[in-house]
Simulated scan of single mutants.
Amino acid sequence: MPPGVTAQRIETPVGGFAVLEARPTTGVAERWPALLVPGYTGSKEDFIAILQTLAQAGRRVFAIDLRGQFESQGPEDPAAYSCAALGGDVDVIASTVGDGEPVHLLGHSFGGLVTRESVLDGTAKLASYTLMSSGPAGIVGPREHAGRTMLAELPTHGVERIWSERLEPEALKAGVPDDIIAFLRRRLLANSPTGLLAMGRAVLDATDRVDELCQTGLATLILYGEHDDGWPPTLQAEMADRLDADCVVVPGAAHSPAVEAPETTAAALTRFWNAAESEILHR
Rank of each mutant, 00 (worst) to 15 (best):
L243Y: 01
F272E: 07
A266Y: 06
C247A: 12
L243S: 05
P251C: 11
A276K: 03
V248R: 10
A258Y: 08
T265M: 08
P257N: 02
V250I: 15
T265A: 04
M239V: 02
A266L: 06
N274Q: 11
A253R: 05
A245V: 01
A245M: 00
W273S: 04
A261C: 08
A266H: 09
P257G: 00
T270S: 15
P257W: 02
M239T: 02
A253F: 07
V259H: 13
A254N: 11
T265F: 08
T264Y: 07
H255M: 05
D246K: 06
A276E: 09
T264K: 09
F272Y: 07
L243A: 10
V248A: 06
D246G: 03
L269N: 09
A253W: 06
S256P: 00
V250F: 11
T265R: 09
T265P: 14
M239D: 00
A276W: 05
S256W: 07
A276D: 13
T264S: 13
R271A: 11
R271P: 01
A268M: 01
V259Q: 15
A258S: 14
A258F: 13
A275K: 06
L243H: 03
W273G: 03
V248D: 06
A276M: 01
G252L: 14
T265D: 14
S256T: 13
A275F: 00
M239G: 02
V249E: 10
R271H: 12
A268R: 03
E263P: 06
A261G: 11
A258P: 08
P262L: 02
A268G: 09
F272H: 11
P251W: 06
A240E: 05
D241H: 10
T265S: 09
T265E: 10
T265G: 07
L269K: 04
A245K: 02
P251D: 11
D241M: 09
A245S: 05
W273Y: 13
V259E: 15
A240N: 04
A245Q: 03
T264V: 12
S256M: 10
V250M: 03
L243E: 03
R242P: 04
D241V: 03
R271E: 12
D246Q: 12
D244F: 04
W273L: 01
E238M: 08
M239Y: 02
T264I: 09
